[in-house]
Design a protein around this nucleic acid. Structure first.
Length: 265
DNA sequence: GTTGAGCGTT
């Protein structure tokens, strides 16, 4: 009775969804079930996981059968420390199908006057919805994602947003400077220079044709120093230094004389 | 093994 979310949404017609935030990445539905079940009848618990990695995203959805129980759970479990972390329980505002939700309850009465302006728009949806993402540059997305995962997203603006008030910059006090005259000029010049420099700095592909990829210091003064005792008379003869590679890939190296290297032929 | 704002699956 803990495998929630294994068969998709069971029935979200008369269920109240609660959003549990700030949960640990290790917290599972099984851990939340007993906790929420104590305050009411939990219909289903779903914890969104990453589609790529499969790890928990740090929040879960708990569905209650009755609103009063859900409300109670919200009041009781909101701020409760779970697994050493304070969780935030609140009614879900957005539905999975962009349905209208009232107090966590999904209302089928969709306002026609209002366009399907999905308030929720995230990179995941975009990436998944976008079919050109793979053609464009999957690496970019992946890199960014990975980077975010390991380095954490922009905590600066995020943290600011989380500042006691929900109005980080009300009235767009972010006004650039004075107008768009100065900044533009600056940008223009900067860009100009940047481009100039870019042209120079750019082209890393052919900037270094690099006939020699690895400096190979060992080839510099290795034969003699490396194997003072193993040096063969042939090596001295200049017949074939035979830069034996530790990797066993003599041909990979410039290998001036591959056939000599082996000497089998 | 890491992280920490947010709103969801077959």
């Amino acid at each position: 009775m803990s495998h929630f979310g294994r068969s998709g949404p069971p029935d979200i017609s008369d269920t109240y969804s609660l959003l549990v935030l700030n949960i640990t990445f290790r917290t599972t539905a099984d851990d939340l079930f007993p906790l929420f079940h104590k305050y009411g009848d939990v219909v289903d618990i779903f914890i969104p996981k990453d589609r790529r990695t499969g790890d928990s995203r740090g929040f879960a959805f708990v569905r209650y059968k009755y609103a009063d129980e859900a409300q109670k759970a919200v009041e009781r479990l909101d701020g409760r420390v779970v697994d050493g972390r304070e969780i935030t329980v609140q009614f879900a505002k957005y539905g999975p199908n962009a349905e209208r939700i009232h107090k966590g309850r999904i209302v089928e009465s969709a306002p026609r006057s209002k366009r399907s302006r999905s308030p929720r728009r995230r990179y995941r949806d975009d990436d998944y919805r976008e079919k050109d993402y793979r053609r464009r540059s999957r690496s970019r997305s992946y890199d960014r994602y990975e980077r975010d995962r390991h380095r954490g997203r922009d905590r600066d603006y995020r943290r600011r947003s989380r500042s006691r008030s929900a109005s980080p910059d009300k009235g767009r006090g972010r006004g650039r400077y004075d107008d768009d005259d100065r900044p533009i000029r600056s940008i223009s010049r900067s860009r100009s220079r940047s481009r100039s420099r870019s042209v120079d700095s750019r082209s890393p592909a052919r900037r270094s044709p690099s006939p020699q990829r690895s400096p190979s210091p060992r080839t510099s003064a290795s034969p003699r120093k490396k194997s003072p005792r193993g040096e063969s008379p042939r090596t001295r003869n200049g017949h074939s230094p035979t830069p034996v590679s530790p990797r066993g890939r003599p041909d990979a190296s410039r290998s001036p004389s591959p056939r000599n290297s082996d000497g089998d032929a």
